[in-house]
Design a protein around this nucleic acid. Structure first.
Lengths: 160, 160
DNA sequence: TTACTCATGTAACAAGTTACATGATTTA
DNA sequence: TAAATCATGTAACTTGTTACATGAGTAA
């Protein structure tokens, strides 16, 4: 819904593409997720699907007034907003420290390289994307820099 | 599996409790998730369930060698580790900026209060928890501080 | 002895995944 | 004209959710 609200009329297919292009590997944007989700949102009166007059059966999606209200309520849910969510780095951090991974030169090198690579990719993306996406990328860049900082300190502390 | 590996013998019930007490609202630790998951992991040869000799049918869980190998592979997956995951704050940030929410004094106050409250709760928790959990909390504290910093700058930038 | 916690589990439902299926339009 | 892309959708399967059900041990 955020995708549709921010960028105006879109097809379910374009929503799929947006998810597939996003850095998140947690939501793949599969057809089997998007089309049923759109159907449910239309049934719930949160989305309007306007059939276009072409032979591709294209449908443009719009938020209904109730849809806009629901999106606003979701975005202004402060308790949810400040929750950890699912942080793959944080989830593994305890294991790294506990298992001595942070004294393994080869693992450290791979992890830091992965962080730097991700950071470079995000900085590159930030140039090309629109304003809404640029904000998300900015927060992701800060997250990655925080992780790098933490990693360096944790390695220092774990050193023999 | 991480829960079992880090803290030794545990029952499925104790794993449930750990999830219920964790700050994550993304995984509730419901019985309908935990017990079937344990059954699948045992069937896959990653966990051993050792029945205790009491009338509660208590089963202590252990990682098999294959289980330890699988957990290690998961924890050392660098690409996954550096991915965004699901960040409820980041997901909403674009909407806040786009909709003028960041010029709404009352919303800003609520959001900042929620951040400060979460931060205080994490700092409090850090004292009582074990070393493995303390690391995760440390990363969460840094995440919250980063968000507060970003919010202040974003409000400044959005000011009329 | 009543209420709480420990402990295991199932049933109905929700919502994601991959893989498959179809057809229109555009581009090399 | 062949391949890629746009566009919609379904089917089988996985794994989460809430709610329900059962029973043992412990503390007020």
């Amino acid at each position: 819904m955020s995708e549709i609200a921010d960028r105006g009329q879109k097809t379910a297919f374009q929503v799929r593409k947006a998810f597939q292009n996003s850095p998140s590997i947690e939501w793949s944007g599969s057809a089997g997720a998007v089309y049923p989700a759109v159907r449910r949102l239309v049934a719930a009166g949160l989305l309007d699907a306007v059939a276009q007059d072409d032979k591709r059966a294209t449908k443009h999606l719009f938020l209904t007034p109730r849809g806009r209200a629901a999106l606003k309520a979701w975005s202004r849910d402060c308790l949810r907003s400040v929750s950890v969510g699912i942080d793959p780095f944080r989830l593994r951090s305890g294991i790294w420290l506990n298992s001595g991974d942070l004294r393994d030169e080869s693992f450290i090198a791979r992890l830091r390289a992965a962080l730097e690579e991700r950071l470079a990719a995000e900085i590159e993306d930030q140039k090309s994307e629109d304003a809404v996406e640029a904000i998300r990328i900015e927060l992701n860049i800060r997250l990655l820099r925080m992780r790098i900082e933490w990693l360096d300190e944790a390695i220092e502390a774990a050193a023999p």
